[in-house]
Amino acid sequence: MDLGHWVMKSNTTAEAVDLESMPGHCIRRLQQIAVAVFLQETESHGMTPVQYSALQGVMNAPGIDQRSLARSIGLDTSTIGSVIDRLEVRGLVSRNASPTDKRVRMLTLTPMGREALEAVIPSMLQAQERMLDPLTKPERAEFMRMLRILVVANNELSRAPGEV
């Protein structure tokens, strides 16, 4: 792909640029669409994509600390605190002090959290299907393969690098 048409022609003059040809613009739009579809499909559960990721992350690693959870789902440590606050208020996760470091908070799903996670999974999976609906099965696999390449290759550029 020729990227030259994205660059200003001189230091002082900007040229008209087709936003739809810019990967950053399309990725941002796709993120907006992904969130909208997720929220539509999971509306009855009152869960955001980030809350779902946090619950699933705790389910995958019971007793995980907040910092490790943030890293595992690609969130910054200041954001994960408020996400866990909301999940704790709803009775979905519990925080417990680490036996080795009282400053570290270990996370576990409550029985209600496990039920909420199990209840939202069919809607979450339906959202994933809807997002990829315009693609054929082979295109879906190729899109996901290329998406993972971009995420892994650019992970360290993120303000909150995830575990890849």
Score class of each variant (00 low, 15 high):
P23Q: 05
W6A: 03
G46Q: 14
G24T: 09
E41H: 13
T12S: 10
V17C: 04
L19D: 06
R29G: 02
T42K: 00
L19H: 06
W6R: 05
V17P: 01
Q32G: 15
Q31C: 13
L19Q: 07
Q40L: 14
V7E: 00
E20Y: 10
E41S: 10
T42Y: 01
Q40C: 10
A14N: 12
W6G: 00
A34D: 11
E15Y: 11
E15N: 14
R29M: 03
Q31I: 14
A36S: 12
W6K: 01
A34W: 01
G4M: 04
H45V: 04
A14R: 15
L39R: 07
E43D: 15
V17H: 04
S10V: 07
V37Q: 02
N11M: 13
L39T: 00
A36V: 09
A16K: 03
I27F: 05
T12W: 13
G46P: 01
V37T: 15
Q32P: 04
G24D: 09
Q40F: 10
N11H: 14
D18K: 06
Q31D: 11
H25C: 12
H5N: 10
P23L: 03
V35S: 03
H45Y: 10
A36K: 09
C26H: 02
T13W: 09
L19I: 06
A34S: 10
N11F: 15
I33G: 03
V35T: 11
S44W: 12
T12D: 11
Q40A: 12
T12Y: 13
K9N: 11
G46C: 06
A16Y: 09
I27H: 06
S10T: 15
V17G: 01
V7F: 07
L39K: 03
S10W: 05
E41N: 10
A16I: 08
G24A: 12
N11D: 11
E41I: 03
E41R: 08
E20A: 08
C26V: 11
S21P: 01
A16R: 06
I27E: 04
R29P: 03
E41Y: 02
L30I: 11
S21G: 08
D18G: 02
V7N: 02
V17Y: 03
L30P: 02
Q31S: 12
F38K: 02
L39Y: 00
T42G: 01
G46W: 07
